[in-house]
Each structure stands twice: as C-alpha cells, then as structure tokens.
Simulated scan of single mutants.
Amino acid sequence: MLAAGAALVPATAANAHPDADRVNVYPPIQGSSTWDRFGLSAPASHHVVFGNWGYLNDWSVDIYRNPGATVVSPFGSKTTSGHPVAVKVVTVRPGCATGNLADGGYRIGLEARDTTTGQILARADVMHVNRKPSGIVVGASVGPWTKLGETGRFRWSSCYQVNGDSGAHIHLEVINQHRYSCYVRRAANTTLNDLTVIGVAGTHHTGQRQAC
C-alpha cells in the first residue's frame, strides 16, 4: 500500500482564502499524457491515501506516460485574479509504505502560495516519481517546468500493480488549504497536453471528490 501522509482526523481549518483566488491544476507530466488510461482511476472513485494539514487529500487520479517522461509541478503560475503563484517542495520521501523506492518511487509534495496575499492555496502529492534530481529537496522552489523527476516502471507490489510500460503513471492527489478543490470530469483514456486543465485549487467546494 502507499504510505499515508497524515492523520485521518481533520485538524482545525485554516482561514478561508478569497473565492476568486484560484489556481488551475495541470497534468504533472510534460508533453502528451493520458488521463485514467484503463478506466480504473477516475477521481470520482480513485483511492486517496495521502493527507496534508491533518486532512485526507481532496481527490486523486492516475495520469499515464511511458517511462522516461519529465514530471513537473501541476500548479499554474498565476491565480484567476492574476496573482503570481509560488510553489515549494514540502515532502520528499518514498511513496510506498515499505520505504523502498523500488516499490513505487518518490512521493513529492508541493505547496502553492499566492505571493500577493501571502495565502497558501493548496498542496499536491505527486507519486511514483523516478530519477529525482538532487536539487528537489524540502524547501526548494519550483517553477511550472522544473523537473521533479521522470515517470518510471517499478517492480510489482501491493503499492504498484503495473506489469507493462503502458501502465507507468503518476498518481496525483490535490488538497485545498481550506474547504475543497475540484477536478475536471473527462472520459477514460483522454489525451492531455501541457495546457489541459485537470482541476482547480482554491475553490470552495463542500466535500471530497467533487467535479468542478
């Protein structure tokens, strides 16, 4: 199983951020990728295993690309009100409960902050990252195209049940600082590109796994 990242009991919510202060979420893989290739990981039902601020994350999805593709931050560079967004690394650890990178690679956690208001908008956990560069450490600032690592194929385990290169994927989870983010509903096996919006953080939805 994947390694859990937080307690399951919610902590006290942070102060709300403005409704207009939203940031788009894009595929965490540079170039072409595939949404929910096999129809098994749609956000409406896909497992959420990590957490931040004492909450389980809001939603998750698997995005596919054969091994060797560049993995990047999924957060946009500006909010919908035009404020610059800064992203920093908050988690770097083996993603699987075994602690062995061979079982599923790295989990890299990212935090998006509105630099105009100073408010934290959201976090994302990018899981199954291979070949992490040495500069990707907790506290590092990353831009939209900063390389976090690559897609990889890991050995079969309860954490990573993949038996071919076409099954290589990034498991992405997103969570708001306050209330809930949302995902953009789409059909299985949909092709994505760098500018495809797959979700929105900073929204005020009322629960987990809600479509925008």
Rank of each mutant, 00 (worst) to 15 (best):
G5E: 14
G5I: 05
A6Q: 02
A13Y: 00
N15P: 06
H17C: 09
P18Y: 11
D19C: 03
A20K: 09
V23L: 10
Q30F: 07
F38M: 11
G39Q: 06
A42H: 14
H47V: 07
Y55E: 06
N57V: 00
W59K: 09
I63D: 07
R65A: 03
G82W: 08
P84F: 13
K88Y: 14
K88W: 10
V90L: 08
V90K: 00
T91D: 14
V92Q: 03
R93A: 15
D103L: 12
T115F: 06
A124H: 02
M127A: 12
H128A: 03
H128S: 03
V129P: 05
R131S: 14
R131C: 00
P133T: 13
V138T: 12
G139F: 07
S141M: 13
P144W: 03
T146N: 06
K147V: 15
E150V: 07
T151L: 00
R153H: 15
R153L: 15
F154R: 04
C159Q: 05
Y160Q: 09
V162K: 05
N163H: 14
A168K: 01
I170A: 11
N176R: 05
Q177W: 00
Y180K: 09
C182L: 06
Y183I: 12
A187H: 08
N189C: 07
V200E: 01
H204E: 11
G207V: 04
G207E: 06
Q208H: 15
